[in-house]
C-alpha cells in the first residue's frame, strides 16, 4: 500500500489546484460578477471561493467535476456573505411571479412575431438591463444553464434544489425575460400584436 507523504500530498494538491481549479477562474468570475454587479465584490467572492476550495481540497476527488464543485462553493459563499449584506437584488415572492405569469402565459404565443423582430438586434443595452434586472434566483439558473452549460442535474446540486424546481425556475426565468423584453420593445414603439 502506498503511503502518501506530506511532500507528494502537497505536490498532488498543487497539481489539482493548477490543472483543475485555476482554469475555471474566468467562468467563476463571470458568475460572481453577474451575481454582485460590483467588481470588488466579485473579486472577493472568487478569492474566497479559491481559498475555501484549497482548504477543503482533500474532499475533492481528482478528475471529477471541478467546475461544478467550485460553482457550488461560490454560490454558498455568495449566500453567506452577500445576502447578509443585502447588496444583491431582493429575493422574489415566487407566488407573485407565478400568478403574474399564469395570467401572461395564456396569450403568450401572440408575442412570437414581436419577439422575432426583437431578435434582429434592434434593442441594444436595454436587453442587458433586462437580464440584470432578473431576480437573483432566476438569474442564477439562466447563467448556469445558458451561459455555463451545466445540466439540470448539475444545477440541482450546485444550488441545492430538486431537478423539477430547476426546470420550472428556468422556464419562469425565460418567460420573465421575454416579458421584460416585450416591455422594452413596446417602449421603443413596437406594437403588441394582441391589440
Amino acid at each position: 500500500m502506498m503511503v502518501m507523504t506530506q511532500e507528494n500530498k502537497t505536490e498532488r494538491y498543487d497539481r489539482i489546484f493548477e490543472q483543475e481549479f485555476m482554469p475555471q477562474i474566468d467562468a467563476l468570475y463571470t458568475f460572481a460578477y453577474h451575481l454582485t454587479y460590483n467588481e470588488d465584490d466579485a473579486n472577493d467572492l472568487v478569492q474566497e471561493t479559491y481559498l475555501k476550495a484549497f482548504r477543503f481540497i482533500d474532499k475533492y476527488d481528482e478528475g471529477t467535476n471541478a467546475k461544478a464543485w467550485l460553482f457550488k462553493i461560490l454560490k454558498n459563499a455568495f449566500i453567506n456573505q452577500y445576502r447578509k449584506k443585502a447588496k444583491q437584488p431582493n429575493r422574489v415572492d415566487y407566488e407573485e411571479i407565478v400568478g403574474y405569469h399564469d395570467e401572461e402565459d395564456t396569450n403568450f404565443s401572440s408575442y412570437m412575431d414581436l419577439r422575432e423582430e426583437m431578435f434582429q438586434g434592434m434593442m441594444g443595452d436595454e436587453v442587458t438591463n433586462a437580464i440584470n434586472a432578473l431576480p437573483v434566483d432566476f438569474r442564477v439558473v439562466i447563467l448556469l444553464c445558458d451561459i455555463e452549460g451545466f445540466t439540470y442535474e448539475e444545477i440541482s446540486k450546485i444550488i441545492d434544489i430538486p431537478i423539477g424546481t430547476v426546470r420550472s425556475r428556468l422556464h419562469r426565468a425565460r418567460n420573465l425575460l421575454k416579458t421584460k423584453l416585450q416591455e422594452y420593445a413596446e417602449s421603443l414603439g413596437f406594437k403588441d400584436k394582441r391589440s
Binding site: K9, T10, Y13, F17, M22, I25, D26, A27, L28, Y29, T30, Y33, H34, A42, N43, V46, Q47, Y50, L51, F54, R55, I57, D58, R115, M118, F119, V127, T128, I131, I142, L143, D146, I147, R174, L177, K178
Partner: peptide, 30 residues
C-alpha cells in the same frame, strides 16, 4: 431567443486577482 440571451458578456478576472489567489494559496495550510 437562447442565442440572443447568450450574446451576457463573459468577464475576465484581473491578473492581480489571479496573483493574489496564488500568493494566498502558497501560505495557506491544507
Amino acid at each position: 431567443f437562447r442565442e440572443f440571451i447568450k450574446s451576457i458578456h463573459r468577464r475576465k478576472p484581473s491578473p492581480a486577482l489571479i496573483q493574489s489567489i496564488k500568493e494566498k494559496i502558497r501560505i495557506a495550510p491544507v
